[in-house]
């Protein structure tokens, strides 16, 4: 256990908790990232991802405890050897996270590129179907009135159970649709 025990800076709580400066920086970058992420332009979205990623990485680093010397065995100037090492595990995790964030950003950029190639815009649009439903909802009151005049059923759903029966239902004649035509056919 030559380079082991006592070398790491992190340990119990209290004075070895996270550095506030790091956390605040991380938080600020997260703020910037979120603000960019809520935009519509793909470029801003990518920048937002990158900022957010950086911010979260700083937060992970905060969890690693106070600053220390680089986690290299038998290396570095001997006078610094008494300083405890920084926690390597958050660094490992952050490295992976950085690479993954890069890959994601690159892909989204490729999409922005393609979108630009296809349409010249890199805007995020609203979904068409959802807009349609919202419009139907907007037209609901007019729809209800129309239905109340016993007009034909909703064009989108003629089978809709909310639709009134054909006008001669009051006779009790139609309900089983018995009149299927003359002697040639014979109903069921």
């Amino acid at each position: 256990m030559s380079a082991g025990a006592g070398l790491l800076a992190a340990g119990g709580g209290g004075a070895s908790g996270g550095t506030v400066a790091l956390a605040v920086t991380g938080g600020a970058l997260v703020t910037a990232g979120i603000a960019m992420l809520l935009e519509r332009s793909l470029t801003r979205l990518v920048v937002g991802i990158l900022l957010l990623g950086n911010g979260v990485n700083l937060l992970i680093l905060t969890g690693g405890g106070p600053a220390g010397r680089a986690p290299i065995l038998h290396g570095g100037p001997p006078e610094a050897a008494h300083r405890p090492m920084a926690d390597p595990l958050p660094q490992i995790m952050i490295l992976t996270a950085i690479v993954i964030a890069l890959a994601s950003a690159a892909f989204v950029l490729a999409i922005a590129y393609r979108s630009g190639r296809l349409g010249g815009e890199d805007e995020v649009r609203d979904d068409i179907e959802d807009r349609r439903v919202a419009r139907r909802r907007g037209g609901m009151r007019a729809e209800r009135e129309r239905r109340a005049i016993a007009g034909p059923a909703d064009p989108i759903d003629p089978d809709e159970l909310g639709a009134p029966e054909a006008p001669d239902a009051a006779d009790g004649r139609d309900a089983a649709d018995g009149r299927d035509g003359g002697a040639g056919e014979g109903g069921r």
Binding site: L37, L42, L45, I49, L52, G53, V56, L59, I60, T62, G63, G64, L89, P90, M93, A97, I100, S104, F107, V108, I111, R114, S115, L118, V124, R125, D127
Partner: peptide, 26 residues
């Protein structure tokens, strides 16, 4: 691309949230 962008951005946000959770837990 349009639909994909929605999916990608939401998924990236969830990844970031996961990372924050890992940060907190660690």
């Amino acid at each position: 691309i349009r639909a994909g962008t929605t999916y990608i951005m939401v998924a990236l946000s969830s990844s970031m949230l996961f990372l924050v959770a890992i940060a907190v837990l660690y």
